[in-house]
């Protein structure tokens, strides 16, 4: 028997899992380096969603105090701490993305491709050349 109420009550976690696995799958499966970064972003965003959704208090309003600091006793506020944490994590994510894209630009300049297979082929050729050269020099022991 499927417990539908359980599934609906945890909707935010299902969304988080869906996003996380989507992002993770893109990182693993795509060969294009830019697409990998996009996947990494989706992966990170899933965590932002997790944090923000757990900060929600049902019936709670935005956690901003009135200017006179006189709060109504009946008013419930959402938890602002996860939002603050995620603000930091978003900044980290932006920095990571910018750095990854900068690396991709440099890789494109050096290798002439941003496809993983193409890069791998070039690197394998380099390694094979090294192995032949250094293996011979070491008396075929390498």
């Amino acid at each position: 028997m499927i417990d539908w109420q359980f599934i609906i009550d945890h909707a935010n976690y299902w969304l988080f899992i869906l996003l996380m696995m989507t992002g993770f799958y893109i990182v693993v499966s795509r060969g294009n380096l830019v697409k990998k970064v996009v996947g990494l972003n989706i992966f990170q965003v899933s965590v932002f969603m997790l944090y923000i959704s757990i900060g929600k208090v049902s019936g709670g309003t935005a956690p901003i105090l009135p200017v006179d600091l006189e709060t109504e006793p009946g008013v419930v506020y959402s938890n602002p701490l996860p939002h603050v944490l995620i603000l930091t994590a978003i900044v980290v994510g932006v920095a990571t993305t910018a750095l990854a894209l900068a690396l991709i630009v440099r890789i494109r300049e050096e290798y002439g491709t941003i496809d993983e297979d193409g890069i791998l082929a070039i690197e394998q050729a380099i390694v094979r050349g090294e192995n032949v050269r250094h293996g011979d020099a070491m008396g075929d022991r390498a």
Binding site: M20, F24, V27, L33, K36, L40, F43, Q44, V47, L50, A89, V92, T96, L99, A100, L103, I104, R106, I107, E110, Y111, I119, E123
Partner: peptide, 20 residues
């Protein structure tokens, strides 16, 4: 460059797991 890129992808995945 590709070494740094690989490190970045793996390191970020690790960090995100940690945050989860």
């Amino acid at each position: 460059l590709t070494a740094a890129y690989d490190y970045l992808i793996m390191g970020t995945i690790g960090a995100v797991f940690f945050v989860i």
